[in-house]
Design a binder for these strands. Structure first.
Lengths: 228, 228
DNA sequence: GTCATGATATGACATTTATCATACCGTGCT
DNA sequence: AGCACGGTATGATAAATGTCATATCATGAC
């Protein structure tokens, strides 16, 4: 909750900047709600009313669905600008997925009705937003298909490379997920995630110190991800 | 290819009707291209330039991706109003999926640049379209997660019920997919699709006459789909 | 510090699923 | 008619994956 207007250093501003006149920008800025979350906190919960359009300013989050039986499926891991609500904000009354923070995160929310109104008045804004959200949905669909094609080793490799290439930009990083969550993301059991990581370690592909992963043989990991 | 304006009986018209003034509606109508496809024909091909916004007026299509290795993954089966291009039209230069007709189908295409322009000028249209496309993308994501949770029997049951409940509205229908395509959709092998169908027949759940399926024990099929 | 708890780890085993071989059937082609 | 071809079908077997049991380790609560 920031009283002053902090939109100037918000990455989402680029969407609005060409689209909105100054006075509208003021309106956006004054109605927005910024919130801080620490690791593990729930950002939003499935089956609750959608009243806001939420996007991620900083941090890392997981989107997931939970079963009556208690099991969870992770839909995607999203970083800033990957997560600008999801499509359902414009087609559903209730969220059909939950979001929790994997790292300390900051979100910013706009009143959904206001945003709809702005979009109606300003097609350029609508189009920009559509494009952003399309990219996110596209990535989810393609990633899911990609993962489904692979065997266990390929799935784990894919996930590790995702973090290395797209989130941390380093061959060494701290996993933001537990082994269980990794399993929920790529659709396998916790034991098999652990086993596969151990195999990679034994094969000299990784060094593992608890949650810290160091990718030693990137070539090999990449070829396992693509097919192995 | 229709010379006269046939938009009056197009289901998509509802999107435009409240949004566009008469003269714009004329523009849409005159620039649109309607095309007929018969079973098996390619409607669009992945890795080709996106120049049009395409939606399905009638028929049934499959969206799929193909591998260098030759294997195909079906992303979704879509009927009219399920398929209004896909999100990528607004975020990509090239299609990342192909579409072919499972039944005789009619598509209608608008020039994408024109549509963009209309959306920029008319936020209401943009918002309506966003909503339609959101629903489609949402369904793909949720279906994929749903299918991933299930075992073979559950997957086949789910697929059969999809056709019965959402496409043909009858307990007896002709499968628009080969067994191989069913396998490509739900992520299993052709042999196992066939085997599972045979099991269902032996268990008295289905009657099978080639491509014609009759669901005899719907209760049981439904419980297998949910979990069994 | 001790305890409880959940995460990580590994092995043995059961189950599920894929692969390979083979056969049959229908359709279109000549 | 005869043939080639792709779809359907089934069984035997191999491979991949899940389940269950158990152990260790780290962490936070008290």
């Amino acid at each position: 909750m920031d009283e002053k207007c902090s939109c100037d250093n918000c990455e989402l501003k680029e969407l609005f900047v060409d689209s909105l006149e100054e006075d509208h920008m003021e309106a956006v800025c004054s109605s927005k709600k910024e919130k801080d979350y620490s690791v593990g906190e729930v950002i939003l919960k499935e089956r609750t009313q959608i009243r806001e359009f939420t996007y991620l300013k900083s941090g890392l989050v997981k989107l997931f669905r939970s079963d009556p039986s208690g099991s969870e499926q992770i839909i995607t891991i999203a970083k800033p600008m990957d997560y600008v609500s999801l499509l359902s904000v414009f087609s559903n009354d209730e969220y059909n997925y939950s979001v929790t923070a994997l790292e300390d995160s900051v979100t910013c929310s706009l009143n959904l009705e206001n945003l709809r109104m702005m979009m109606r008045e300003n097609g350029g804004l609508a189009l920009s937003l559509l494009q952003k959200m399309s990219r996110a949905a596209d990535r989810i669909i393609l990633d899911t298909l990609e993962i489904r094609k692979k065997h266990l080793r390929g799935r784990v490799a894919y996930l590790l490379l995702y973090f290395s290439d797209n989130v941390y930009f380093s061959s060494e990083f701290d996993l933001p997920l537990t082994r269980k969550e990794m399993a929920e993301y790529v659709g396998m059991t916790t034991e098999n995630v652990i086993r596969t990581l151990s195999e990679f370690r034994k094969d000299g592909i990784l060094k593992i110190y608890g949650k810290t992963i160091q990718i030693v043989n990137q070539e090999l990991l990449r070829s396992i991800s693509e097919f192995g």
